[in-house]
Design a protein around this nucleic acid. Structure first.
Lengths: 351, 351
DNA sequence: TTGAAAGCGCTAACAG
DNA sequence: CTGTTAGCGCTTTCAA
């Protein structure tokens, strides 16, 4: 346990000032001779600039934060891998937090990051705009991935009012929106639409949607794809846990034995659906067809192999990291990545 | 984007010195009156001490590092969740890195952590003792989880020599071992032994082991459980990737169609085995029985559901985090957590 | 019990 | 092109 050399040590050993060392090491101008000398001494002393000093001086930590709901969910594992890969290529540290899809924990983690002066953050948000206010106020560069923060209830109400006005042929007042953070999303709308069309093509009419936290855009897409009127009993929600997902799936199958197909909004829900169906002796795809959001390695292992809506988790993470590192001036604020319906064996014609 | 209050602001507003504020906030002694006053002002100014200043002063970052091979592997996801849960309870930041089971990347990540002055690290190591030397030299508190660093080749050789001496009835010289870092491991030996016994009980004699990086202890246990002579063709290794795992599994099945059972050393290998078997039209468990290390949610979804050796990934992470945060004086240096054979449907009697 | 002051290692003005 | 210097926000002696 020997203590590391400081910039001062290098300066002395090289017979120059500390500023020169700093300059050379950060690519500033210096005479070839000096540069060479400094570099040699630094190498010889095995000098590594301490991030501590730099951070304090610049009043910000390098690197970035990453907040996901649950690293046990393969999709978020993929996303995280993407972020880490990008960060590794630039040598940046990534502070990771797991929110458990709980706004309160998310809030605490944001506080922790603020305390660390981490000013760049990639998040799969759980809380609403209010939860995210402190981060924005502090001037953090935030990039949302996979989903956007829910909008506060009051705003939704206001939207409803606006909609009514529009029905009456009136133009609602233009109200300012909170500045949208850049985000990286999958094309949920297209993904869901394709899946629903596929199921309808197979003859299915009573199609259910099994959603989880943050799946609002997917449900909306589902509603749109199914068209009015949507049978509300066929749209059910679980919280983040596997237990809750199982309960929701099981409840759905039991309360509506007439449904013939299910779209699961995420891989944990898909897993729950398979389990619940088996428990209730429903055969897939004979009794019920299933499409799952997320392609995960085990989707192929199921029998039958699961038909899925694949989204590029790793790419999403990588892109988000790029965005947060280089907040381009006129870069597209929102990146939408394509989804793909991968047809395997979990869907069949309506029984 | 308003700038945060500093300790100086609080001191001025409370009419005390900065030292007093520091003391009060870190639970030092102060008159009740002063304390109250400082606390009130701090709250009112929404003061949060900056980790930057503290870190520089103490020449160390709070929190810890976490290095895993791949967050896409559910087991490491579980482990990471455990670490993050523990860290969250103490408000500590966790810097996570993914090594891809590549010693070089691991080495770079260690360097990055050193640069950040992160002096506590939990790692699922990939490199050998040499890779870990810099961390040790720098005085990092390291806790290994799931596995230990491979020992350098020369040492293995020396061991072989020692073994020969013992065979000759000689006592080899006592050579110093590198100080062992504390670690949290699953009881691989018992887990593998139980699985092998179970398979033998079903009548299997030609049992193969499908291993990956870091599975040395598991192979050793396998060899021991099978007893001499071990059919070396039945012990095959893959690198970390899914492709490699698939290739290894497929190759194994094809080169030794006479094998009747396989023990997969990890969930990625288990996945590969299922896939390869299916591709070769081998039925599980009729044609080949399979036991997989790691219980993961999808093990139950397979058909047949996979018989597994479960290890408590989340607990392992949590314990490791506790160990690294409180390096107990005379605490057990190595924690071994129990494994459990969970019998589902992937093993049958020898055909 | 309290405050003043000295840095921790680094970068960025500012002179030279 | 280069060196000197002034902090960044905090903790921690050391006196008072």
């Amino acid at each position: 346990m020997e203590k590391r050399a400081t910039i001062k040590d290098v300066a002395e050993a090289a017979g120059v000032g500390v500023a020169t060392v700093s300059r050379v090491l950060s690519g500033g101008s210096a005479s070839p001779h000096t540069r060479e000398r400094v570099l040699a001494v630094a190498a010889q002393l095995d000098y590594r600039p301490s991030a501590l000093g730099r951070n304090l001086r610049q009043r910000r930590t390098g690197g970035m934060g990453l907040l996901v709901p649950d690293l046990t969910d393969t999709f978020y594992g993929q996303l995280a891998e993407g972020v880490l890969a990008c960060a590794r290529s630039t040598g940046e540290p990534v502070v990771v937090g797991s929110t458990g899809d709980d706004p309160e924990q998310e809030s605490e983690l944001i506080g922790m990051l603020l305390e660390q002066s981490v000013d760049r953050l990639i998040a799969v948000p759980t809380g609403d705009a209010e939860t995210w206010a402190p981060a924005v106020r502090a001037g953090m560069t935030v990039v949302f991935a996979d989903r956007l923060p829910a909008r506060p209830a009051e705003e939704e109400q206001q939207d409803a009012v606006d909609d009514l006005m529009r029905l009456d042929g009136l133009s609602p007042a233009v109200r300012p929106r909170p500045p949208e953070a850049p985000s990286v999303l999958a094309d949920d709308r297209a993904g869901i639409r394709t899946a629903v069309r596929y199921l309808r093509g197979l003859g299915h009419r009573r199609i259910a949607f099994l959603g989880g936290p943050g799946h609002d855009r997917r449900v909306a897409a589902f509603r749109e794809a199914v068209g009015t009127p949507v049978d509300e009993e066929l749209v059910v929600f679980a919280t983040g846990s596997r237990d809750s997902a199982y309960a929701a799936a099981s409840g759905l199958f039991q309360s509506r034995p007439d449904l013939t197909a299910v779209v699961a909004g995420g891989n944990v829900l898909g897993e729950a659906a398979v389990l619940a169906a088996r428990e209730l002796d429903l055969r897939v795809p004979r009794d019920v067809s299933l499409v799952m959001y997320d392609d995960v390695p085990w989707a192929e292992l199921c029998s039958p192999p699961l038909t899925v809506i694949a989204q590029p988790g790793r790419d999403m993470g990588y892109r988000a990291a790029e965005l947060v590192l280089r907040p381009g001036v006129r870069r597209p604020r929102t990146v939408v990545l394509p989804t793909e319906l991968i047809i395997r064996g979990s869907c069949g014609p309506r029984r």
